[in-house]
Amino acid sequence: MAESDGGQSVSGYIKHHLTNASVGDGFWTFHVDTLAWSIVLGFVFILSFRAVAKKATIGVPGKWQACVELIVEFVDNTVKSTYHGKSALIAPLALTIFVWVLLMNFMDLIPVDFLPSFAQFIGGQLGYDPHHVYMKVVPTTDVNMTFALSIGVFILMIFYSIKIKGVGGFLKELYAHPFNTPWLYWFNFILEVVALLAKPLSLSLRLFGNLYAGELIFILIAGTIGLWQLPLHFLWAAFHLLIIPLQAFIFMMLTIVYLSMASEEH
């Protein structure tokens, strides 16, 4: 497939695949592909589940309803076993994260050149230079996507901490822990702030790193070894099939854990 790009070098091929389609300059750059795919997949989730919610019957469920209920019940059990407070937000939040991230991760299993080539073809027809038409189809390999999710979770963590423990309780947790002596408060504060900030950072970088690495290996296989890529693609896809739901589950699980930590008194 690298050959089809017309004499492009391997590094050029890889670079091309790792560049987002962007609009704008500097900070106000928008990754159009990330936004489009993630929002489309978000709507796939929302609308397919909404279709069940609208006609939810307490009698014998249809096949699609049974499937949706399976996922909902799985998320509900996970939330109930981890988060002991009462909140109308945590469970839907966990469901949204799980299904949305799962769908976005699954974009990784679409052959690496399929959608980008299609986009290049359309771009060429519209009169653009095909070499400058970019398309990165896996939104979770964009650090903006994963940070958006983790920052959303981080805001909720702060919100729950303050709501349940009050501003004073939240601040006290930052400086009076783990050494409860006034002359070490400054040290506690540094430790706790680092720990607090590490949560969203690790949450987003874990998802980003796993998916980015997976995508990169698909691209490497596709870009370097010609026909032999077919069995290798299969092997890597089979392995990646484990990582995709695992990362979605870990992101959901850690979200619940962080929020339950935020809403519990120490």
Binding site: N20, G24, G26, F27, W28, T29, F30, H31, T34, L35, S38, I39, G42, F45, I46, T96, W100, P139, D142, N144, M145, F147, A148, L149, I151, G152
Partner: peptide
Amino acid sequence: NATLLGELIAFIFF
């Protein structure tokens, strides 16, 4: 970049 803001809004909406 600003993609983050867009995704954050999408996330909140969903």
